[in-house]
Nucleic acid binder design. Structure first.
Length: 124
DNA sequence: CGGATTTGACCTGCGC
DNA sequence: GCGCAGGTCAAATCCG
Protein backbone atom coordinates (compact mmCIF):
# COMPACT_ATOMS: atom_id res chain seq x y z
CA UNK A 1 0.00 0.00 0.00
CA UNK A 2 2.53 2.55 0.88
CA UNK A 3 4.29 1.87 -2.36
CA UNK A 4 3.76 5.51 -3.12
CA UNK A 5 6.78 6.94 -1.37
CA UNK A 6 7.98 8.15 1.95
CA UNK A 7 5.83 11.24 1.50
CA UNK A 8 3.01 9.15 2.89
CA UNK A 9 3.74 10.48 6.33
CA UNK A 10 3.92 13.99 5.04
CA UNK A 11 0.73 13.77 3.08
CA UNK A 12 2.26 16.03 0.53
CA UNK A 13 3.20 14.28 -2.64
CA UNK A 14 3.94 17.15 -4.91
CA UNK A 15 7.38 17.94 -3.74
CA UNK A 16 10.25 16.94 -5.97
CA UNK A 17 12.76 18.23 -3.55
CA UNK A 18 12.08 15.26 -1.31
CA UNK A 19 11.91 12.41 -3.75
CA UNK A 20 14.80 14.09 -5.47
CA UNK A 21 17.14 12.32 -3.14
CA UNK A 22 15.91 10.76 0.01
CA UNK A 23 17.85 8.03 1.61
CA UNK A 24 15.50 6.19 3.76
CA UNK A 25 16.62 5.60 7.18
CA UNK A 26 14.56 4.75 10.11
CA UNK A 27 12.60 1.76 10.89
CA UNK A 28 9.45 3.73 10.63
CA UNK A 29 7.56 4.26 13.85
CA UNK A 30 9.42 3.79 17.08
CA UNK A 31 7.05 2.31 19.63
CA UNK A 32 8.18 3.39 23.01
CA UNK A 33 6.44 1.23 25.47
CA UNK A 34 6.77 1.42 29.18
CA UNK A 35 7.04 -2.09 30.38
CA UNK A 36 8.40 -2.60 33.89
CA UNK A 37 7.30 0.20 36.12
CA UNK A 38 3.54 0.23 36.12
CA UNK A 39 3.69 3.74 37.39
CA UNK A 40 5.68 6.76 36.30
CA UNK A 41 7.38 8.31 39.22
CA UNK A 42 4.89 11.08 39.65
CA UNK A 43 4.44 12.46 36.15
CA UNK A 44 2.88 10.79 33.17
CA UNK A 45 4.52 11.86 29.97
CA UNK A 46 3.64 11.31 26.35
CA UNK A 47 3.87 7.79 25.18
CA UNK A 48 4.39 6.46 21.71
CA UNK A 49 5.06 9.14 19.13
CA UNK A 50 5.84 8.57 15.49
CA UNK A 51 9.44 9.44 14.81
CA UNK A 52 10.74 9.52 11.28
CA UNK A 53 14.19 10.63 10.25
CA UNK A 54 15.13 11.53 6.70
CA UNK A 55 18.48 12.34 5.23
CA UNK A 56 18.09 14.77 2.38
CA UNK A 57 20.87 16.06 0.16
CA UNK A 58 20.44 19.76 0.55
CA UNK A 59 22.44 22.76 1.61
CA UNK A 60 19.50 24.48 3.21
CA UNK A 61 17.63 23.13 6.16
CA UNK A 62 14.38 24.88 5.32
CA UNK A 63 12.90 22.17 3.13
CA UNK A 64 9.34 23.15 2.37
CA UNK A 65 7.30 19.99 2.30
CA UNK A 66 3.99 21.77 1.94
CA UNK A 67 3.53 22.51 5.65
CA UNK A 68 4.27 25.67 7.58
CA UNK A 69 7.00 25.40 10.15
CA UNK A 70 7.97 27.91 12.81
CA UNK A 71 11.46 27.74 14.24
CA UNK A 72 11.26 27.68 18.02
CA UNK A 73 14.78 26.94 19.06
CA UNK A 74 18.39 26.34 18.15
CA UNK A 75 20.87 24.22 20.10
CA UNK A 76 24.37 22.93 19.61
CA UNK A 77 24.85 19.23 20.17
CA UNK A 78 28.18 17.61 20.86
CA UNK A 79 27.53 14.88 18.33
CA UNK A 80 27.95 17.55 15.71
CA UNK A 81 29.86 20.84 15.45
CA UNK A 82 26.74 22.23 13.84
CA UNK A 83 23.70 23.65 15.58
CA UNK A 84 20.45 21.76 15.66
CA UNK A 85 17.25 23.59 14.66
CA UNK A 86 13.85 22.89 16.15
CA UNK A 87 10.71 23.53 14.11
CA UNK A 88 7.04 23.17 14.97
CA UNK A 89 3.99 23.06 12.74
CA UNK A 90 2.32 26.46 12.93
CA UNK A 91 -1.03 24.98 11.96
CA UNK A 92 -3.62 24.82 14.68
CA UNK A 93 -4.32 21.26 15.75
CA UNK A 94 -1.01 20.05 14.45
CA UNK A 95 1.16 18.80 17.31
CA UNK A 96 3.80 17.84 14.81
CA UNK A 97 7.37 18.84 15.46
CA UNK A 98 10.35 18.80 13.15
CA UNK A 99 14.03 18.61 14.10
CA UNK A 100 16.65 19.58 11.52
CA UNK A 101 20.33 18.89 11.85
CA UNK A 102 23.26 18.88 9.44
CA UNK A 103 25.04 15.63 8.87
CA UNK A 104 28.41 15.39 10.62
CA UNK A 105 29.97 13.27 7.92
CA UNK A 106 28.22 14.92 5.03
CA UNK A 107 27.86 18.68 5.50
CA UNK A 108 26.03 18.65 2.19
CA UNK A 109 23.31 16.53 3.73
CA UNK A 110 20.63 17.45 6.21
CA UNK A 111 18.91 15.14 8.65
CA UNK A 112 15.26 15.99 9.07
CA UNK A 113 13.42 14.25 11.85
CA UNK A 114 9.64 14.47 11.96
CA UNK A 115 7.84 13.83 15.22
CA UNK A 116 4.14 13.08 15.20
CA UNK A 117 1.60 13.06 12.41
CA UNK A 118 -0.14 15.98 10.71
CA UNK A 119 -3.79 16.18 11.68
CA UNK A 120 -4.64 18.84 9.12
CA UNK A 121 -4.48 18.33 5.42
CA UNK A 122 -1.60 19.93 3.64
CA UNK A 123 -3.17 19.20 0.33
CA UNK A 124 -6.05 21.52 -0.24
C1' DC B 1 -0.68 44.67 11.44
C1' DG B 2 0.33 39.99 11.75
C1' DG B 3 3.16 36.47 11.63
C1' DA B 4 7.65 34.76 11.69
C1' DT B 5 12.31 34.75 13.27
C1' DT B 6 16.34 35.16 16.66
C1' DT B 7 19.03 34.43 20.95
C1' DG B 8 19.20 33.50 25.73
C1' DA B 9 17.73 31.60 29.77
C1' DC B 10 15.38 28.11 32.11
C1' DC B 11 13.80 23.43 33.20
C1' DT B 12 13.87 18.56 33.40
C1' DG B 13 15.95 14.00 33.31
C1' DC B 14 19.81 11.07 34.05
C1' DG B 15 24.44 9.78 35.34
C1' DC B 16 28.12 9.33 38.45
C1' DG C 1 24.44 16.36 45.38
C1' DC C 2 26.14 18.18 41.32
C1' DG C 3 26.96 18.39 36.46
C1' DC C 4 25.71 17.61 31.93
C1' DA C 5 22.69 17.21 27.91
C1' DG C 6 18.83 18.11 25.63
C1' DG C 7 14.60 20.44 24.98
C1' DT C 8 11.30 24.24 25.44
C1' DC C 9 9.51 28.91 25.98
C1' DA C 10 9.68 33.93 26.06
C1' DA C 11 10.77 38.60 24.62
C1' DA C 12 12.27 41.51 21.06
C1' DT C 13 12.74 42.41 16.37
C1' DC C 14 12.08 42.25 11.38
C1' DC C 15 9.67 41.34 7.14
C1' DG C 16 5.86 41.14 3.86
Amino acid sequence: MEDDDASTIFGAVHNPVYRANEVAVPGGARSHFEGPSDNESGRERQLVQERVAFKTKSQIEILDDGFKWRKYGKKMVKSSPNPRNYYKCSVDGCPVKKRVERDRDDPGYVITTYEGVHTHKSNS
